[in-house]
Nucleic acid binder design. Structure first.
Lengths: 216, 216
DNA sequence: CATTATATATGACAAGGTGTCATTTGTCAA
DNA sequence: TTGACAAATGACACCTTGTCATATATAATG
């Protein structure tokens, strides 16, 4: 059943804001894209630890020296690619929230469908997993992406019926659940059952874990 | 406020069951411990990617060749150390559940206190973070530790009042929340406020996100 | 005790990685 | 044509890892 993937992911990536050098930005955009594409492919293909700058520069046909004038190192490059994709993720997320009039439950139902579709369409699987992993425990709570995403969609969330206590926490909880769902979906060959399971979980998140009578 | 830690973690670790070679197990236990201690220290000190087998064998006073007869590589070593510590974590967790008669809410309240105490006492912080990270998104859902822990404590959880839908998911949700709380606590200098926040979240998990009237 | 078998230890080595830098090449403006 | 600045280059120093033929210790046996 679950025979693939004997590899797990917890990766060390230097934090901080990532930006390629001006030199890179000045580059002919064809050249930029070539490098980005090659790199993306590398990140999709091998484990993060095994990503090799050597291989990247070979495939992109640039010299070692050039690479290091563009990016300080592989973390830097990865961070940049992430940054580029983040925008898409952010935009999609917000769009969904708006289209659902801020309703959390429905938004997260829909997000699952939207993202799994997106992944399927673009063969992003491996790379997107990395992106999602980027939103992991640490990230999620302390670092930019998770928090930034929240800030970005915050206003699109309908809060009248929600307990005020900690909207950001709630958001992360749902996000976490979504990521698990998506990752499962990406790996599974039976999406519809994963989808069903996912929806049940969203319900638990909404209404709590206790049976009716026990509530509060 | 949150000025430390510019580093985030998403790490690549090979999965699979980790076991040192018989040769290592045969070793005089003083020698074993020496190596383990040195390694542990390395893992505590530097980012996972930067952990160097070189440094470890130097500090442990063993030859390169020996190391590689004990463990296949650094992932293997890390996995083993994790394994050793996991037992402790498992035991503690179960103990707490039993002492709370399986009540989820109270168990997770207590787990927070127990673990933060444990960490404080043992200067595990950096290493335990790694352990906790080991239980991250992927792990949590697909791999041994998270699932295994669940199986281990499963029977100690009182389920009469819980919606049956997906106990494991609920468990992971609470766990996830606990890990976030602990990590925050480890980094913070105001544990009691983190603790308070944590408890509020546990309540959300128990009773859902909606205000009274909106429920179901 | 001598001899053989087996377990353990060793460090030189190949293969490959990273980041730097003095130098070359390209480009544009005066 | 010349000078000034931007970009590209690849050899280099220095690191890492995992392997393997060889040396050494330990045990087992005739």
């Amino acid at each position: 059943m679950n025979n693939c993937m004997t590899t797990c992911h917890i990766v060390d990536i230097k934090g901080g804001v990532t930006m390629p050098s001006q030199t890179f930005l000045n580059l002919d955009s064809r050249k930029q894209n070539k490098l980005l594409e090659v790199a993306m492919n590398e990140f999709k293909t091998v484990r993060y630890t095994e990503v090799s700058v050597n291989r990247i520069i070979q495939n992109a046909n640039i010299s070692r020296g050039s690479f290091y004038t563009y990016f300080t190192d592989k973390d830097d490059l990865f961070g940049y690619i992430l940054e580029l994709n983040k925008k898409k993720v952010f935009a999609l997320t917000k769009e969904v929230f708006l289209s659902c009039r801020g309703d959390i439950k429905n938004s997260f139902f829909k997000l699952f469908d939207v993202f799994t579709k997106e992944i399927e369409d673009h063969d992003f699987s491996r790379f997107l997993k990395n992106i999602f992993l980027y939103f992991n425990i640490y990230k999620e709570k302390f670092d930019r992406p998770g928090h930034a995403l929240f800030l970005y969609v915050k206003d699109s969330i309908a809060t009248e019926e929600i307990k005020a206590s900690d909207l950001e926490f709630i958001f992360h909880l749902f996000m976490h659940n979504l990521l698990i769902g998506i990752t499962e979906a990406v790996r599974s060959n039976n999406i519809s059952s994963i989808r069903e399971q996912y929806r049940r979980k969203v319900n638990i998140l909404c209404y709590g874990i206790y049976k009716e009578d026990k509530r509060c």
